[in-house]
Design a protein around this nucleic acid. Structure first.
Lengths: 139, 139
DNA sequence: CGATATCCGACGAAATCACTCGGATATGCG
DNA sequence: CGCATATCCGAGTGATTTCGTCGGATATCG
């Protein structure tokens, strides 16, 4: 996703290219990107010169969305899930006092995850087209 | 550990007892408690009427300590570990911009974990010896 | 002595993670 | 058209981790 953010605005990027840049197996990326597409974070264009593009500018994509798409609902424990659908109330819930701990941990995770966007992780994009408004995102 | 906190001050509690209360296999608890002992969170007294006791009052044991003892250093990713010993710098570190995300997530986790103590999770201890100062910790 | 405990090390089943394989389908270009 | 380049799709594998089991040695109280 960071690679896609890097290429944002310059047309679709192929998995083969990203695989080379990150050296990860192409076949693996293929599998991952399915989830991203289903989550509506990327769109694909098939055929030659095809590839994937972000559907929104990097600054508008929270890391929480990315991780939820890739790894499912955020839940340090199955009884403290992000997604109310998957929140299986454990059979121990009556006596279990630990749940609130996990809920707090989860909230801490999700809030930091949702407070960072792809733009925060995308490379500084040094020496871009124009220089003048360069120092917006100082590292 | 919550069970041990509950019994704090009333002598050692046997694993068999805790196993019954939490219905977990005794043999499994045995394995877990080894780590707690090595971390200095509990002490054992062997023989009949033996068992385990917390070495400190529940309010002085942060949940972070407990989890670090049980599950090792806190690290959402191997490249963002709590413990500098285990912080294996990944071979990708030069190009990887995602690390700071994991570091922030880890800090969020550790700070919420260290901000809660066993006393926070220990049962309200309803109907204790004396009634008068009962409403200290309202659920 | 004998019941009740902790101690210790190894083993096993199930789930998850990261990744592979083989092929079908769609698109651009000469 | 025809071929190279891509995405699409579903099943399968291998290593690691997690949760637990089993059997027996050692210590202590009554």
């Amino acid at each position: 996703m960071v690679q896609l953010a890097r290429h944002y605005g310059t047309g679709p990027a192929s998995l083969a290219g990203i695989a080379a840049e990150e050296d990860l197996p192409r076949a693996y990326l293929e599998q991952l990107v399915v989830n991203l597409r289903e989550a509506g974070l990327v769109v694909s264009t098939r055929g030659a010169h095809g590839g994937y593009e972000l559907t929104r500018p990097p600054a508008a994509i929270a890391m929480g969305e990315v991780l939820r798409a890739l790894e499912g609902p955020i839940a340090p424990m199955f009884c403290a899930s992000d997604d109310p659908e998957h929140a299986t109330t454990c059979d121990r819930s009556s006596r279990c006092t630990v749940n609130i701990l996990w809920v707090r941990v989860r909230d801490a995770i999700t809030s930091t995850l949702d407070s960072m966007t792809l733009a925060d992780l995308a490379p500084p994009r040094v020496v871009a087209l124009d220089d003048q408004e360069g120092a917006l995102i100082a590292t």
